Amino acid sequence: MNYQLEVCIDNIESLHTAIKAGATRIELCSSLALGGLTPSFGFMKQAKQASSIPIYAMIRPRQGDFLFSDEDVEIMLADIQAAKNANLDGIVIGVLTADAHVNVSVCKKLISAASGLGVTFHRAIDQCQNVERALEDIISLGCERILTSGQRSTALAGIETLAKLHQQAAGRIQIMAGAGVNADNALEILNKTGIKELHLSGKTVRSSKMNSIQSEAQMGASDVDDFQIPVTSFTAIQSVKSIYK
C-alpha cells in the first residue's frame, strides 16, 4: 500500500495549497477551529471541480461531543446527499451512544445513505470508553479507515495505542494518525506504529489583503483577529510529504 497524506481544510485557498504541497486526499470541512464541521454545498461543488485528488466531506452538524439527536441525524443525512450531489469521493462520520460506544445503528443509516461513497470514521473513536471494541464495531460497519490520535491529545502522545490499533486491525481497515502531526514527529509515528496514513491541517495564518481600515467592529470572539486568515501552510504539508520519499 502507498502512503497517504490527508490534509483537512476549511477554505478554497487551502485546497490549492494542499494539493500543490503533495496531499493525496482532502478532508473538506468548515470551522477547523471547532474541530471541523460540515462544509457548505457550494464549497463541496467548487472543491470537487478544482481538485485532482479525492475529497471526503466532514459530516458533523455542530461542535462538541458526538452524541447526536434525531434532528442532528436528519441534518447529517441531508448533508450526505449534498456530498453525493457534489460528486465527492467520500464522507467522514462518527456517532456515539450516551455510554461512549459507537452508535452502530445510526452509523449504518448514514453509511447506507452514502452508498457509493467511501467512508472514514473520525476521531469520535477517541471519545470511546473501549477503543478495542470500537475498532471492531467500525470494521463491522465497512468503513475504509479510522482517523485517531490514539485517544490522546496528539498522535505522538497516543503512539502506543495507535500501534496496538494497527496490529488489531490486521489489514481489515486502515488506521490514520491525526492530531499534532508535523515534520518533526511524522517519521517516528510511521515507524513506531506501522501505519501508512497521516492526517494534518498544517495550519498557519496570513494577513488580510484589505487596505487598512479603522473599525471597532468584531465579527466573532474577542480573541479572534478578523484580519488574520487561517490557511494551510505549503511548507508544513510539503515537509511531511518529503518524509514519505
Rank of each mutant, 00 (worst) to 15 (best):
L198W: 04
L200E: 05
A217I: 14
S215V: 09
N182V: 02
G220W: 09
R172K: 13
H166C: 04
G220I: 01
M210E: 14
V181P: 02
S215P: 08
S201H: 01
A186V: 06
D184G: 11
E197S: 12
K209G: 15
Q218P: 04
Q168C: 11
G171H: 06
T204M: 04
E197G: 06
Q167S: 12
N211E: 15
K164H: 11
K196F: 04
A169V: 05
Q218M: 12
K209P: 00
I175Q: 03
V205N: 12
A186W: 07
I173A: 01
K203I: 13
R206G: 03
A169R: 03
N182E: 00
S201P: 06
N182Y: 07
L190T: 04
V181S: 00
K192V: 01
A179G: 09
I213V: 15
L162T: 07
M176C: 07
I189N: 04
H199K: 02
N185E: 01
G180T: 04
Q218V: 14
M210F: 11
I175A: 06
L198D: 00
M219C: 08
V205D: 10
T161I: 13
D184A: 12
L187T: 10
Q168M: 14
E197C: 10
Q174D: 15
G194S: 02
M219A: 12
G202F: 06
R206K: 15
N191R: 13
